[in-house]
Design a protein around this nucleic acid. Structure first.
Length: 322
RNA sequence: GCCGCUUUAGCUCAGUUGGUAGAGCAAAGGACUGAAAAUCCUUGUGUCCCUGGUUCAAUUCCUGGAGGCGGCA
């Protein structure tokens, strides 16, 4: 880990033309990103984590975080930066990833952004709209309102102030209804009046690599991985977190491999093997959603994940090509 | 061996007072504007266990058989 605090005092230089190359490495959970990174030349690259759960301290086994040996070999950024009780957002990701890139370039290295959170990749590349960030007070108010009158009433309220969003968002999608309504309540402008750029930020020149594997193979890997997590002591990790005060609604606890234990405690009747099966199932569903999102990205070099040599060649020819 | 219940989608089960059937889960596909490991959308033909019978028509009623579960021996 590299400390970023010193960077804050420095003014961030605009990225030079020569300092605009970086690698995106993404793919669904368990496809083999971490394994691949261990094979890549240590001297030229530093890794920026783009995984919304691995940013949290103490969530090691369940999030399949890279080992500390691995982090010593290749510098890693955006890992273990927050306690799991604290909210992290795309905006935080972009800000810190930008800082990390500056630091990496200043050391003559090239950043590899690696992870499975498609939302982070998308907005790291294209940026965010000018819509206001979440105001916890406003969100709390809206949540109260939902409890009182139901999400349908918020949806109807949205119709009056932001018809395009109302039409776009499904009435059951409480998450997006809340966000759209929140934007209006915060700044008085509809969410639909803000747009996202279609061009990469900062003159960025990314090599975009998407990893995939055969479906059967993915399912096999997921099962093996969850078994391995148990052997490595996932249960003890969860017990430790609960002892330390972890609550179901902590942001970090919505991660797969953690939330299932809270579900099990709640229902009171799930056996160990049922909980494990649920973790595997949730992971499969997640991997599927990740594929769907990543597949919508443009200019992706889709590579079979076991094809290590070809992927390395691709990366090396990219950084040599000036 | 006898008695009762049961056999319908990959799984758990509804249902058809006789006109060839539908939920949940799974599976497959999709969306994604500061919580994204989140949130949400779309997609259901399956010898209705087998065999005869009654009927214009049987997955449904009746006979016989097979599998499962329970009880009594």
């Amino acid at each position: 880990m590299v400390k970023l605090s010193t960077l804050k005092t420095k003014k961030l230089k605009t990225i030079k033309a020569s300092n605009n190359k970086l690698v995106f490495l993404f793919g669904p959970t368990s496809v083999g990103k971490t394994k691949l990174l261990t094979d890549i030349c240590k001297d030229k690259f530093s890794v920026i984590n783009a995984d919304s759960i691995q940013v949290y301290k103490g969530l090691d086994i369940g999030s399949a975080k890279v080992s500390s040996e691995m982090m010593e070999k290749i510098p890693h950024y955006l890992i273990d930066i927050l306690p799991p009780s604290q909210q992290f957002s795309v905006a935080d990701f972009i800000k810190r990833a930008d800082e990390a890139c500056q630091d990496i370039y200043s050391k003559g290295r090239i950043p590899i952004i690696s992870g499975g959170t498609a939302f982070y990749f998308k907005h790291f590349l294209y940026g965010l709209s000018d819509a206001p960030p979440t105001d916890p007070k406003v969100r709390e108010e809206i949540e109260k309102e939902i409890k009182l009158n139901g999400i349908a009433s918020i949806y109807e309220a949205l119709k009056l102030v932001d018809l395009p969003s109302y039409n776009k968002i499904n009435p059951n999608d409480s998450y997006r209804i809340q966000r759209a309504y929140e934007v209006y309540k915060t700044c008085g402008k509809p969410l639909s009046s803000f747009s996202i750029s279609e061009k990469p930020r900062n003159n960025m020149d990314p090599l975009i690599i998407g990893l995939y594997r055969d479906n059967e193979e993915m399912h096999r890997r997921l099962r093996v991985r969850v078994d391995l997590m148990m052997k490595e002591g996932l249960l003890d990790e969860v017990k430790r977190l609960i002892r330390e005060g972890a609550k179901e609604d902590w942001p970090g606890m919505q991660g797969i491999g953690y939330r299932e234990f809270f579900e099990a405690i709640k229902s009171g009747e799930n056996s160990r093997s049922q909980t494990l099966a649920k973790i595997v199932l949730d992971s499969k569903h997640y991997a599927k959603r990740q594929y769907t999102f990543f597949r919508s990205f443009k200019n992706v070099n889709w590579m079979e994940a076991s094809n290590t040599e070809e992927i390395e060649n691709l990366i090396y020819s990219f950084i040599q090509d000036n």
